[in-house]
Design a protein around this nucleic acid. Sequence first.
DNA 1: AAAATATTTTAGATTAGCCTAAATTATATT
DNA 2: AATATAATTTAGGCTAATCTAAAATATTTT
Lengths: 219, 219
Amino acid sequence: MKLTSSEENYIKAVYHLRGDQRLVSTNELAELLATRPASVTDMLKKLRTKKLLQYERYQGFKLSAEGKKMALGIIRRHRLWESFLSEKLRFNWDQVHDVAEQLEHIRSSLLIDRLDEFLGFPRFDPHGDPIPDPQGKMQVSRHLPLDECPLLTFAIVSHVTNQSNQMLEILGHHRIAIGTKLEVRRKFHYDHSLEIRIRNQPAIVISEQVARNIHVKPV
Amino acid sequence: MKLTSSEENYIKAVYHLRGDQRLVSTNELAELLATRPASVTDMLKKLRTKKLLQYERYQGFKLSAEGKKMALGIIRRHRLWESFLSEKLRFNWDQVHDVAEQLEHIRSSLLIDRLDEFLGFPRFDPHGDPIPDPQGKMQVSRHLPLDECPLLTFAIVSHVTNQSNQMLEILGHHRIAIGTKLEVRRKFHYDHSLEIRIRNQPAIVISEQVARNIHVKPV
DNA sequence: AAAATATTTTAGATTAGCCTAAATTATATT
DNA sequence: AATATAATTTAGGCTAATCTAAAATATTTT
Ligand SMILES: [Mn+2]
Ligand SMILES: [Mn+2]
Ligand SMILES: [Mn+2]
Ligand SMILES: [Mn+2]
């Protein structure tokens, strides 16, 4: 079955709301896609007809097995393209997403299989997210929020959950980016703030709120 | 100015009908795009509004300077992607076109400039067609129909004009493909047939009709 | 120069995807 | 349990891109 780009974007968004495991609501999806609830309802009916999700009006919806398979296919393409842009075309980690958002919709199994091979069958994308294989299987990513990271262990920043300008401002200030290698030196129990060190730079303190949004992979 | 995929396909098709040099007719364009003349008229009005072509009803149309620039940008993207698919992903020359037809519409100047660099700034695509540079300039391609090729000069097959099954049957029989290196040994004036030789294989004779549809680049 | 034919345009539909505003249904509060 | 509020759906419109059939215009033939 071939889907339009719009249908693919909806399916992928439902998956990102964990719609393979739980009921998702119309408003949640509208919010994530920056669209209107009425538009979501329209699309839900269409996707239900195509048997990609189970949906009863006013009751929420979740992906069918087929829908989940589709979602993983789209995510596979997205993350492979992100890897390509990062590895081969020297894109920064914050430049890859928007272009991959378009590239993911190009349908050609030859293309995506050859791309996978060309990249050496990568298991993770530049953000540290796992890349599904052709069957939809993926490795569990070993990254975790910085506030759960063991003390005195080197780790590499793999993902930033909140990408608001305010957050990026803090990150920029502390010179923290995807790929930055750091170490948690100490945890303050009073406010759960953390003292961390980047390479040879002086130690800095960040709040729990910031730490929760920085994901790292221990090395 | 940003165009839709559909607008881009129309602009490119007008260019391929030499619409930068001459007046093109509605039916010609409809034929090339496998669409209806009425649809072409609709689009012509839209593209005229965007000043991409000059068009007066019943009088035909041609590209404006701006339209030509757009066309060359699209062709640049198309041919760079074809080169990528061929060089890096081991696509055959007859597999690249359809995928490039989609990839060409992805808009990101960073993407296309980096791709160009990654490929080593190629001047010709896998079909031997020249790739416009960022300013729209391209080298004149040196390929010509086999029946006009000088005698006893090695040349490489760069393009096959007629790709009907009948033609492909003949080519397959003689083991002629894009990239095949050959030499014209003799021209028979009686029926304009040619004797050619591929590498160390025994010489073969092909008709004028076949020769006209095989394009080569002398080396 | 008429008539016949071919080309092109217009008129009017259709579909996908989106929207706003109003109506409906579910959930929370009193 | 009734009322208020929140979530969701429906109704009705809009635009882009396509189509068919009919009308208009241009071109060719007699
Ligand atoms: Mn997308
Ligand atoms: Mn990613
Ligand atoms: Mn195209
Ligand atoms: Mn080509």
